[in-house]
Design a protein around this nucleic acid. Structure first.
Lengths: 224, 224
DNA sequence: TAGATTGTTAATCGATTAACAATC
DNA sequence: TAGATTGTTAATCGATTAACAATC
């Protein structure tokens, strides 16, 4: 597909390394924090400290998109913030649907990190008649049967799965056939999606697992 | 510190690239699945398909720790599984404490992915008297005041924060002073930890954010 | 002007991959 | 033996970093 003559908008020269895109959200978090703290400018050195990224790398990352700084001064926070938000597409809000109105769903709905970065839960669905009609925050739980039409009508592209693990794949299939493009899977079960859908499994336990390696290592050093 | 003559157990030659350690948990997940499916052996090619990692890379990763395969045959699943678990230290269970008995805490406590990979919630704490004494799964919610002694007595090294974001740092501080070594922060707020403590912020929204870049990109292609 | 910090090039570094001899 | 797949080397690739001229 990369060799495809039709992908005019992706000339090899303009290709942005994936690592760059993955670091942008970190820069964003820190910039939001700094703005809140009342700062006006920030140098790549300071930004590097706060994000744990080499300052040279930050400067190099940014040049992929233009030059936003002032030599001898640094970067104006609101400008850089705006630029990165535009690059990522987070300069406008993104609506998402949440499936599952249990403990997990309620916790996700209440998660501050969503709104702070431009995501809005537009509807919560469940299939349990006991939950349908109840209130979570300022949304009323809908019957999941209405999901396909509402997703299509409102052109929603992001879905969050927060149901019991056994139901995860089934919910994913409904989301996919409704035209969802990005799925955030909060369950412990693996979900299969077609190639045009981006899947994020929220699996902090996998990360936890790899820290064990270092944990046992530092301890055996300590025992020496 | 790397040049320190005392760090005998980390000779430069034996240093394992971090990427290797980060991939091991993926291999583990797939091996567990394969064993469940009743398979006996697996080739690096097949493992590569299932984990989305180049087969040559898998073989190379494993040689850091020894040679576990049979030429012409592949890897015996139970053997490889066991080896990787030993490398990571997940061949025995790890107890952890969970702080916060609300929706989020309840969801974490019920999370299947923990037990499946050798983690056991050993206690749940809260500071709300209304919650203390109530039951979540087969644990009774304890007063957080008891946390320091219990963590020390039971030599627990992993703590999971699932409280309201305002309280996150305060809880982290208690965990740190109680001797916790790894913190998994499920709240949306940033937490500071000293260098000897490993912090994992569960922030799927950051990942979500970077997919927006690709989302808007594929769509502009589609519009051409 | 002097000091600071960017944007950018060139050097380094390490990780990924291809290839293949060893061997089951 | 013939076929398959590992373990391992060597080549490739790309990302990271150091360095510095440009310039605020």
């Amino acid at each position: 597909m990369t060799g495809d003559g039709l992908t005019v908008s992706t000339p090899e020269k303009d290709r942005i390394p994936e690592g760059v895109i993955e670091r942008l959200p970190s820069y964003l978090s820190v910039l939001i924090q700094l703005r809140q703290d009342g700062c006006y400018t920030v140098s790549s050195a300071r930004l590097g400290e706060l994000t744990d990224v080499n300052p040279a790398q930050i400067r190099r990352d940014l040049t992929h998109f233009g030059s936003f700084g002032k030599r001898g001064v640094g970067y104006e926070i609101v400008i850089l913030l705006d630029k990165i938000q535009r690059i990522l597409g987070s300069d406008h809000t993104h609506r998402l649907v949440l499936i599952g109105a249990g403990n997990l769903g309620s916790a996700v709905a209440a998660y501050n990190g969503l709104r702070a970065r431009g995501f809005v839960v537009s509807a919560i669905y469940d299939k349990d008649p006991a939950k349908i009609g109840s209130r979570i925050g300022d949304l009323v739980v809908q019957d999941v049967a209405h999901l396909p039409r509402q997703v299509a009508d409102q052109d929603i592209r992001i879905g969050v799965i927060a149901v019991p693990p056994e139901a995860a794949q089934q919910v994913a299939d409904v989301l996919i056939s409704s035209g969802i493009r990005v799925i955030l899977n909060y369950t412990s079960s693996m979900v299969r999606v077609p190639e045009h859908v981006t899947l994020h499994n929220t699996d902090p336990v996998r990360e936890l697992l790899h820290t064990l390696y270092y944990l046992s290592r530092t301890e055996s050093v300590a025992r020496v």
